[in-house]
């Protein structure tokens, strides 16, 4: 099987539970992750999740280009919602937040791109 198509490594129970809470918020409330092509989805996942991580960790966020600003707007709202719904997140050390967000990123890449059943994702045109 193609390496990129396998589900990321299983996580311990606590991490898996936390990741599921964040994933549930995204899948129920966000739209940014559903662009219509694989390459678009990768750009969206990378842009918005990395900015969300930076916001959660109190790090500076690049808002230089219009696309950056657009990703940042989605990320700000999402980071706030994460903190509101998951109080444990505010007490988490930065490196753990980063590890969790990284696992979330990998998981979303899998369910939305590499493991997706959506046959249109690989269409060469819009």
């Amino acid at each position: 099987m193609d390496e990129t198509k396998s589900n990321p490594e299983p996580l311990d129970e606590v991490t898996a539970g936390r990741l599921a809470q964040l994933e549930d918020y995204i899948m129920k409330n966000c739209l940014w992750q559903f662009h219509s092509r694989s390459w678009d989805r990768r750009v969206q996942n990378e842009g918005i999740l990395s900015k969300t991580t930076q916001i959660l960790c109190g790090e500076p966020v690049d808002t230089g280009t219009p696309l950056d600003r657009c990703h940042w707007a989605d990320a700000v709202v999402m980071a706030e919602e994460f903190q509101r719904r998951c109080p444990w997140l505010t007490e988490m050390p930065k490196d753990e937040v980063k590890a969790l967000m990284d696992a979330l990123h990998k998981h979303l890449d899998y369910i939305l791109i590499d493991g997706s059943l959506n046959l249109e994702l690989t269409d060469q045109h819009y």
Partner: peptide
């Protein structure tokens, strides 16, 4: 998508 590619205008999906 076309306006983003051709003119660099980002797309914000909303409800």
């Amino acid at each position: 998508n076309e306006l983003r590619v051709r003119y660099g205008i980002p797309r914000l999906d909303i409800d």
